[in-house]
Design a binder for these strands. Structure first.
Length: 103
DNA sequence: GGAATGACGATAA
DNA sequence: ATTATCGCCATTC
C-alpha cells in the first residue's frame, strides 16, 4: 500500500489545475519535492479517478496513456492549448500559485 | 538484498 | 519526428 499522504498531495495538486491548463508528472513530483514522475503516475493510476487526471500530461505534452482519446476530448471541450494530439505545454504549462509568486 | 516493473524524463541515434 | 536506451524513485517478487 502506497503512502496515502503522498497520494493525497498529488490529488490535491491535480485538483488545483484550472481549465485550459496542464501539469506534467515530473512537475508535480518536483513541486511536492518527493518521489518522482513514476510515483505520481502510479498514484494517478490508482487514485486518479477522483481528479481531472486528463489535465496531467507527460513532460513532452503527451496525453495520459490508456485514455488519450478521453483526455483529448476533455481538452478540446475545455479549450486547452492543444497541438495536434498532444497538449501545448508551451502555453498549457501550469504551476500552483503561478501569479502569487510573481503577480 | 537483487531483479523486475511502472499513467516518466531526458538524451542519443 | 520516431524509436531505443539509460536513469530516477518506490513498490513488489
Amino acid at each position: 500500500m502506497a503512502d496515502e499522504e503522498f497520494a493525497e498531495l498529488v490529488l490535491t495538486v491535480v485538483e488545483q489545475i484550472p481549465e485550459g491548463r496542464a501539469m506534467s508528472y515530473g512537475a508535480i513530483a518536483e513541486y511536492l519535492g518527493r518521489g518522482g514522475p513514476r510515483q505520481v503516475g502510479a498514484v494517478m493510476s490508482y487514485y486518479g479517478g477522483g481528479v481531472p487526471w486528463h489535465r496531467v500530461v507527460a513532460a513532452n505534452g503527451r496525453l495520459v496513456p490508456g485514455h488519450e482519446a478521453e483526455a483529448l476530448q476533455r481538452h478540446r471541450a475545455e479549450g486547452t492549448p492543444l497541438r495536434g494530439d498532444k497538449v501545448d505545454l508551451r502555453k498549457a504549462a501550469w504551476w500552483p500559485e503561478p501569479e502569487a509568486a510573481s503577480e
